Structure formats: C-alpha cells, structure tokens
Amino acid sequence: SKGEELFTGVVPILVELDGDVNGHKFSVSGEGEGDATYGKLTLKFICTTGKLPVPWPTLVTTLSYGVQCFSRYPDHMKQHDFFKSAMPEGYVQERTIFFKDDGNYKTRAEVKFEGDTLVNRIELKGIDFKEDGNILGHKLEYNYNSHNVYIMADKQKNGIKVNFKIRHNIEDGSVQLADHYQQNTPIGDGPVLLPDNHYLSTQSALSKDPNEKRDHMVLLEFVTAAGITHGMDELYK
C-alpha cells in the first residue's frame, strides 16, 4: 500500500491521552519512536497531572497497542496490513475493555500522521470500578505478559474488528483478565486493505527511568503479524 511507504525508516511517535476513571481525571503524554521494519516501539509516557489513578499496565493496550501500524508484517502478509494502508489520513480506533469482576474502559483514538510524526490521540472513560479493586486499589504488578491480538475484516465499515484477552499479573500471584473489543475505521476515503483473519504477536517490557521524578512508564515492545501461511505457489519458487 502507499501508506506502507511512510514506515520504511524510524518514525517519531506522539501520544496524548485524556482519561476519566470513576471521576478521577488524568492526562498522559508520551513520545518515542517506531520502526515497522522490526516491529519495534520505544516509548516513554508521563502522567502530566500528577499521580496516575490507575496502574500503568492497564493503559498499555490504549497507548502502544494503539499504534499497531508499527507491527512488522512479513512480505507474504503485507496485503493484510490494514493499519499502514489507512495512512497518512489514519484511522479511528474504538475499544471497550472489560476488566473481569470490575469496571470497564471505553476508548476512542485517532491515529494519524501530523507532518512526519505518527500521533495517537485518545479519550478514555472508565466506569463501575471498585475503589478497593485491583485497578483503583493499585494491586497489579508492574510488568506485562505476551499476547496474541486477533484481527478480522469488517467489510460493512471498511475497517477491521479486533479482539483479545489481556492477563494482568496481580501482586498476590493471581491474574486480572481484561477482555478487549476493538473496531478500526479509516478517516480518509481512499482504498484500504481488508485482511484475511490473522493475529499480531506482541511482547512488551515495562521499565522506569531512574532520572524521572514524575509518574511515568518506559515501554519497549515488539509486534509481529502472523497466522497466514505462504501460498503453495510461494513454496515452490
């Protein structure tokens, strides 16, 4: 796709999030870079409003799984890469995230190029959380598991539907599940690639910047598309 050509090198990323969870309002600002050749993201996020009212790991899918245009699609799968094909005009990404036995996040993001920078601007609203639950009670460990993110075409809306389940580790050794339902639709009216069913395999590492006084998260992530085999004719070339 034409959009794919915008991702040949390292691309700067800007992320802006405004959130409200159970009436606790907050903002997060992030910057870093993405390299789609390797499916690599390096980002640093800062809570610009003081202390973040929710655990950082609960925002990873909104912040970095928010820029799935940096996923590495192998050559034989490039015609299934909706995310890059929607660029530079970008796409709207909407999600509902259900935390098992707790509340939910609803998010709406616009992901697009502004100049040479890929920008992810998000509004997040969280409701029905227990004040002493795993999320508002800050009981999650500061780490992140690997996940597969399942993608299918949504021809009606000229976009994709995505769903997956995140496993958050809790300090007591148990797990907090979070079910994600995602819809992506193009902002522009140019042609986009509608994929066959496949998935993104994601690995994320969270860390801290020892010199950063503000509440923050440093993230390194690798994302690769998989799940579609080479056609038989490919094998015999």
Results as ranks from 00 to 15, higher is better:
Pro74Ser: 08
Ser207Asn: 06
Ile228Thr: 11
Lys25Arg: 09
Phe7Tyr: 05
Thr42Ile: 13
Asp179Val: 04
Gly19Asp: 00
Asp154Ala: 13
Ser201Ile: 07
Val162Gly: 08
Val15Ile: 12
Gly126Ser: 02
Gly231Val: 15
Lys51Gly: 03
Asp20His: 05
Val218Ala: 03
Ile127Ser: 12
Glu89Lys: 04
Ser27Ile: 05
His80Asp: 06
Arg167Leu: 08
Phe70Ile: 06
Asn163Thr: 15
Lys78Asn: 04
Tyr150His: 08
Asn163Asp: 12
Leu193Pro: 07
Cys69Gly: 03
Gly137Glu: 07
Gln79His: 12
Lys40Asn: 08
Tyr181Asn: 07
Ile122Thr: 03
Pro57Ala: 08
Ser29Cys: 15
Asp116Ala: 14
Arg108His: 05
Val54Gly: 00
Thr224Pro: 01
His230Tyr: 15
Asn145Ile: 10
Asp215Gly: 01
Tyr144Phe: 12
Asn169His: 09
Lys84Glu: 01
Lys112Gln: 07
Gly190Cys: 12
Gly32Arg: 00
Asn211Lys: 11
Pro88Leu: 14
Asp20Ala: 09
Lys161Glu: 12
Phe83Ser: 02
Met152Lys: 08
Gly190Asp: 07
Gly66Ser: 00
Ala36Val: 10
Pro88Ala: 03
Gly9Val: 03
Phe99Tyr: 05
Phe222Val: 11
Ala86Thr: 12
Met232Arg: 15
Tyr236Asp: 14
Asp189Gly: 11
Glu16Val: 12
Asn169Ser: 09
Lys106Arg: 09
Glu171Ala: 08
Ile166Leu: 09
His76Leu: 09
Ile187Leu: 14
Phe7Leu: 08
Lys139Met: 12
Ala225Thr: 05
Ile160Thr: 07
Ser85Ala: 11
Gly126Cys: 04
His76Cys: 08
Pro12Ala: 02
Asp179Glu: 13
Asn120Ile: 02
Glu110Gly: 04
Asn148Ile: 06
Lys208Arg: 08
Glu4Asp: 09
Ile127Asn: 14
Phe82Tyr: 08
Val15Ala: 02
Asn143Gly: 15
Val67Leu: 08
Asp132Val: 06
Lys106Thr: 08
Ala205Val: 15
Ile97Leu: 04
Phe98Cys: 13
Leu17Gln: 00
Glu94Gly: 03
Leu140Pro: 02
Asn148Thr: 10
Lys51Thr: 11
Tyr199Ser: 07
Ser27Gly: 08
Lys112Glu: 03
Asp20Val: 10
Thr107Ile: 03
Glu4Arg: 14
Val175Ala: 12
Thr202Pro: 02
Phe7His: 12
Asn158Ile: 05
Gly103Ala: 03
His24Leu: 09
Lys139Gln: 09
Glu221Ala: 01
Arg72Leu: 15
Gly231Ser: 09
Val54Ala: 01
Asp233Tyr: 15
Asn169Gly: 03
Phe45Val: 08
Glu212Gly: 01
Lys125Asn: 15
Pro88Ser: 05
Arg72His: 09
Glu110Gln: 15
Ile187Ala: 14
Asp209Gly: 01
Arg95Pro: 00
Glu131Ala: 11
Thr8Ser: 11
Thr229Ile: 09
Ser204Thr: 14
Val175Gly: 09
Val192Gly: 14
Asn104Cys: 15
Val28Glu: 00
Asn211Ile: 06
Val60Leu: 04
His198Pro: 00
Gln156Leu: 10
Thr62Pro: 03
Tyr142Ser: 06
Asn169Lys: 11
Leu140Gln: 03
Val192Leu: 06
Asp172Ala: 06
Lys100Thr: 10
Met232Ala: 13
Val162Met: 08
Pro12Leu: 03
Phe26Leu: 01
Asp196Glu: 10
Phe98Ile: 07
Phe70Ser: 03
Phe164Cys: 15
Ile13Phe: 02
Gln156Arg: 11
Asn22Asp: 05
Leu52Arg: 02
Tyr144Asn: 07
Lys100Gln: 14
Ile135Met: 03
Ala36Thr: 10
Gln68Arg: 01
Gln183Pro: 00
Asn184Ile: 08
Lys25Gln: 13
Asp189Asn: 06
Pro88His: 09
Thr37Asn: 14
Pro57His: 03
Lys25Gly: 02
Asn134Asp: 10
Val175Met: 13
Asp18Val: 14
Thr48Pro: 02
Glu234Gly: 11
Met77Ile: 07
Asn143Ile: 13
Asn158Lys: 13
Trp56Arg: 00
Leu43Gln: 01
Glu234Ala: 07
Ile13Val: 04
Val15Asp: 00
Lys112Asn: 10
Asn134Tyr: 11
Gly173Ser: 05
Leu194Val: 06
Tyr73Cys: 01
Ser64Ala: 02
Thr48Ile: 04
Pro55Ser: 10
Asn163Tyr: 12
Ile46Val: 14
Tyr150Asn: 08
Gly115Asp: 08
Ala86Ser: 10
Ala109Ser: 15
Ser201Cys: 15
His230Gln: 13
Asp154Gly: 09
Asn145Lys: 05
Phe70Tyr: 03
Asp128Asn: 09
Glu212Val: 01
Lys44Arg: 08
Glu89Val: 08
Glu141Lys: 08
His230Asn: 13
Leu136Pro: 01
Gly227Arg: 14
Asn145Thr: 14
Met77Val: 05
Ile170Asn: 13
Lys112Thr: 11
Gly23Ser: 03
Glu4Val: 10
His80Arg: 06
Leu220Gln: 13
Ala36Gly: 10
Gly188Ser: 11
Pro191Thr: 09
Phe45Cys: 09
Asn169Thr: 14
Leu124Pro: 00
Ile151Val: 10
Val60Glu: 00
Tyr236Phe: 12
Pro12Arg: 05
Leu235Gln: 13
Glu171Lys: 10
Val10Leu: 05
Glu5Gly: 14
Gly159Arg: 10
Leu14Gln: 14
Asn120Asp: 02
Pro210Ala: 09
Lys155Met: 06
Phe99Leu: 02
Phe222Tyr: 13
Tyr105Phe: 15
Val92Asp: 03
Asn197His: 13
Tyr181Ser: 05
Arg108Cys: 07
Tyr38Asp: 09
Tyr91His: 01
Leu17Arg: 00
Ser204Pro: 02
Gly9Trp: 02
Lys155Ile: 05
Asp132His: 07
Val10Met: 08
Gln182Arg: 00
Ser207Cys: 14
Ser71Asn: 02
Tyr150Asp: 07
Phe70Cys: 06
Lys157Asn: 13
Leu200His: 02
Thr49Ser: 11
Gly231Asp: 15
Lys161Gln: 06
His147Tyr: 06
Glu141Gly: 09
Tyr91Cys: 02
Pro195Ser: 04
Val192Ala: 11
Thr185Ala: 11
Gln93Leu: 01
Val67Met: 14
Leu194Pro: 05
Met217Ile: 04
Pro195Thr: 05
Ser27Asn: 08
Met87Thr: 03
Asn134Ser: 09
Gly173Cys: 04
Val21Ile: 10
Leu41Pro: 01
Asp209Asn: 03
Ser85Tyr: 08
Val149Ala: 07
Lys208Ile: 08
Lys106Met: 08
Val10Lys: 04
Asn169Asp: 15
Gly188Cys: 15
Asn145Asp: 11
Lys106Ala: 10
Tyr91Asn: 01
Asp196Tyr: 05
Ser146Asn: 12
Tyr65Phe: 00
Asp35Val: 04
Ala205Asp: 06
Asp233Val: 06
Ala86Gly: 03
Asp75Ala: 08
Lys125Glu: 08
Lys51Arg: 09
Asp209Val: 03
Asp132Glu: 07
Lys165Gln: 12
Val218Asp: 02
Phe26Ile: 01
Ser64Pro: 00
Val92Gly: 03
Thr229Pro: 12
Met232Thr: 13
Ile135Val: 12
Asn143Ser: 11
Lys125Met: 08
His180Arg: 00
Val223Gly: 02
Gly190Val: 15
Val21Ala: 02
Ser71Arg: 00
Asp81Val: 00
Asp35Ala: 03
Ile187Val: 14
Met152Leu: 10
Arg108Pro: 00
Asp132Tyr: 05
Lys25Asn: 11
Lys213Gln: 04
Gln79Arg: 13
Ile46Ser: 02
Ala109Gly: 11
Val149Ile: 14
Asn22Lys: 03
Ile127Ala: 15
Lys130Thr: 07
Asn163His: 09
His168Tyr: 06
Lys157Val: 15
Val15Phe: 02
Leu124Arg: 00
Asn211Ser: 12
Glu89Ala: 07
Asn104Tyr: 15
Lys100Asn: 08
Pro186Thr: 13
Glu16Gly: 03
Pro210His: 05
Phe82Ser: 01
Ala225Val: 05
Lys157Met: 12
Asp81Asn: 04
Ile170Phe: 05
Asn169Ile: 12
Asn120Ser: 13
Ser174Thr: 15
Thr117Ile: 07
Asn134Thr: 04
His180Leu: 03
Arg214Leu: 06
Asn184Asp: 07
